[in-house]
């Protein structure tokens, strides 16, 4: 099932000389959950706004459901539901009134909109006691659910969620993501969500794209992602010895000959060994056989979090230094 529903081609957006999004090519397939991941200020929201036709791209094209989002934004907005990162409603209206208003703007009659609103409020699991309460009294989690109800109201083909887990407590995040997964599997909705919390969304995303400083660094299935980024060197062993080691250590060459070992760096009494397979027992045996007193061994494994950390930390420190 490869049916592209969102197609971004050579999409760029400049604010003055600042590149918010730089020549982005991205395709989202019908029926999948695509996660747009990246730190704050990576251009995720800008990309989403361009996909909705709310912001004009500097160059490139966006096609959503076969419509050009820049030239025919109304057609796109009929089929796409969008949940912004800071959901807010008209505070002096009740939840139901807010939803009916949006329903009417989408061409429903008042009674249809009311019926559909009640249905959606039940779908997102909002308590019935709150239907007729003003939204000013709503908690963040409830607003998020109400926002999702509003997004679903217009029977969209695609829903775009900008930082849907922001500001929710862990159990709120879990149930919200389960709800999204449920909608995706049962109603065949295509979901595009953005987040800067990889570990929160990695469970629900079919594919993700990592987005840093306006550029898409990598995209693909979440499991294949670490292989793409850290080909080979995915283990690091940290050994601490009792005695200090000289600059020209005589056993370095011998250690490098061990199977799987790729790189060694020494500092005083500790040694960092990078390897492409888990050879920790072999390394320990090597030290013991050569008469060293091993004080500690730590094995470090690269996960997605580290990949993410690596990219994000570099971009954050660069931002600070600028």
């Amino acid at each position: 099932m490869f049916e592209p529903i969102i197609e971004l081609k050579g999409l760029s957006k400049y604010y003055g000389r600042f590149k918010a999004v730089d020549r982005l090519d991205l395709t989202v397939k019908k029926g999948e959950i695509f996660g747009l991941l990246g730190p704050n200020g990576a251009g995720k929201t800008t990309t989403i706004l361009m996909a909705l036709g709310l912001t004009e791209p500097s160059s490139g094209t966006v096609y959503v459901c076969g419509h050009n989002a820049t030239k025919a934004p109304i057609d796109v907005k009929r089929k796409v539901g969008y949940l912004p990162d800071s959901v807010s409603f008209y505070d002096d209206m009740t939840a139901i009134e807010n939803l009916i208003y949006i329903g009417e703007l989408n061409g429903m009659t008042r009674s249809d909109a009311r019926e559909r609103a009640l249905e959606m409020l039940r779908t997102v699991g909002l308590e019935e006691a709150f239907y007729n309460k003003k939204t000013a009294t709503y908690s963040r989690g409830m607003k998020q659910r109400l926002g999702l109800a509003e997004v679903l109201l217009k029977r969209p083909e695609i829903i775009i969620l900008d930082e849907p887990t922001l500001g929710l407590d862990p159990s709120g995040v879990k149930s919200f993501l389960e709800l999204i997964l449920h909608l995706n599997r049962n109603q065949g909705l295509t979901v595009l969500l953005s987040s800067h919390h990889l570990h929160q969304v990695q469970k629900v995303c079919d594919r993700v794209g990592i987005f840093v400083k306006g550029e898409l660094i990598t995209e693909g299935n979440i499991n294949s992602l670490s292989d793409n980024l850290f080909t080979g060197s995915s283990y690091e062993v940290h050994v601490t010895l009792k005695e200090r080691i000289n600059m020209s250590w005589q056993h370095e060459q011998e250690l490098l000959l061990l199977k799987g070992v790729q790189k060694i760096s020494t500092e005083n009494d500790s040694i960092d060994i990078t390897c492409n397979a888990d050879v920790t027992p072999d390394i320990v045996r090597f030290f013991v056989d050569n008469g060293y007193d091993v004080m500690g061994v730590q094995r470090k494994e690269y996960g997605l979090e580290d990949i993410y950390q690596k990219y994000f930390e570099t971009s954050i420190t660069e931002n600070i230094s600028v």
């Binding site: 909705l52 709310l54 057609d75 009929r78 539901g81 912004p84 807010s88 409603f89 949006i102």
Partner: peptide, 14 residues
Amino acid sequence: QRGTLIRIMAQPVY
């Protein structure tokens, strides 16, 4: 400021 503008603009209205 309240963020309601973007919600309305995401609906099919001019």
